[in-house]
């Protein structure tokens, strides 16, 4: 066999060998499993302590000619807790308040103020709207709620403070009392 022919055969052998090694190098295989799960949107709100009523009254100061003063005679420390989970690109949420049963006595305005979040939870808590008049139409008391949880129980979330304001002395009736049911609603903006 001359050298040219030998070299030609050698080249052929090397090529075949490389092909074989190529297959050997790729001695691997893949398999796959799809993993799917969902995180749901959540909007939950609660008042703590639960089943706790607030009593508000007007008290006359001693001495003629002095104005009567609104008094919070019991309760006064209730807390608004909430959990909010939002989808990507969703707007923030807000909490509104409204009277759903009962009527505020004549000559009086019922006010509600939410404090800033106590900071015991995590995420983007809402911003209080300041003091609002509570009526039968919804009034926003907290806005800008993002993805967050405030923590559960008294001293978590926003403290709610109710107060009375006399709007018209002429309409006051000191024998009148009223029980109100107030609803808090968390809504998408």
């Amino acid at each position: 066999m001359n050298m040219d022919l030998y070299n030609k055969y050698l080249k052929t052998s090397v090529v075949l060998l490389l092909i074989a090694m190529h297959f050997a190098a790729y001695a691997q295989s893949d398999g796959q499993a799809d993993v799917l799960f969902s995180i749901p949107e959540v909007a939950l709100i609660d008042i703590e302590p639960s089943g706790f009523g607030i009593e508000l009254s007007l008290a006359a100061k001693s001495g003629g000619g002095l104005p009567v003063e609104p008094v919070v005679s019991s309760g006064g420390k209730i807390w608004l807790n909430y959990t909010s989970s939002l989808a990507t690109g969703s707007n923030t949420r807000s909490v509104s308040v409204q009277i759903i049963n009962g009527k505020v006595p004549s000559g009086i305005i019922l006010l509600l103020q939410a404090s800033a979040d106590a900071g015991n939870g995590r995420g983007k808590a809402g911003i209080p709207a300041g003091r609002v008049y509570v009526s039968t139409s919804p009034q926003v008391i907290i806005s800008g709620i993002g993805r967050c949880y405030t923590g559960n129980g008294p001293n978590y979330g926003h403290q709610l403070s109710y107060s009375l304001m006399i709007s018209d002395y002429a309409e006051l009736d000191f024998d009148e009392s009223s029980t109100l049911q107030i609803a808090y609603t968390i809504t998408d903006n």
């Binding site: 001695a27 691997q28 295989s29 893949d30 398999g31 796959q32 499993a33 799809d34 993993v35 799917l36 799960f37 969902s38 995180i39 749901p40 949107e41 959540v42 959990t83 909010s84 989970s85 939002l86 989808a87 990507t88 969703s90 995590r122 995420g123 993805r147 967050c148 949880y149």
Partner: peptide
């Protein structure tokens, strides 16, 4: 709840080598 609510999906790929 701090993670955006969504349907998540990923594929796990297992590869066997000699």
């Amino acid at each position: 709840v701090l993670i955006p609510a969504d349907d998540f999906e990923t594929t796990v790929i297992f590869t066997v080598y000699e």
